[in-house]
């Protein structure tokens, strides 16, 4: 049983780390500010949660697991708020998003 839990938590932590790195890689690779935010939100959500889930499985039913769960909840509430504030501030400052060919930036 504990062997299966160990393997599951291994898998979760590895996948979380890989997702974090993919998100950061997208942050470097994407062409403009708005598209970079999509990449960063992978790190903030899936990568972080999988890492925390892996650690929760290692911690078992203790106060440590509760604290890890609180970190996950904190991310669930604060990361979209910060992202939305950034996007809104950028648009209010007049930073135009790069759009696909055929899309009219003045229309929406």
């Amino acid at each position: 049983m504990s062997m299966a839990l160990d393997i599951l938590s291994w898998f979760c932590m590895l996948a979380g780390g890989v997702f974090c790195a993919i998100g950061a890689f997208g942050l470097v690779r994407m062409p403009d500010f708005y598209t970079r935010m999509h990449a960063a939100s992978i790190t903030d959500t899936v990568g972080a949660w999988l890492l925390l889930l892996g650690m929760i499985l290692q911690a078992g039913l203790t106060l440590i697991a509760v604290k890890l769960l609180m970190i996950a909840l904190l991310l669930l509430f604060t990361s979209p708020t910060a992202t939305h504030a950034l996007a809104k501030a950028a648009r209010a400052r007049g930073l135009q998003p790069l759009l696909a060919p055929g899309e009219d930036p003045s229309k929406p």
Binding site: G17, A21, F25, L27, G54, A82
Partner: peptide
């Protein structure tokens, strides 16, 4: 996990240095 996080940290730092707008740097800082 720590190594993967360090890689992510380095990549985000690259974006924070490259810029080009202040919002890019803020996103990287976040």
């Amino acid at each position: 996990g720590a190594i993967a996080l360090l890689v992510a940290l380095a990549l985000a730092l690259v974006r924070a240095i490259l810029g080009p707008t202040v919002f890019d740097r803020l996103q990287a800082a976040n």
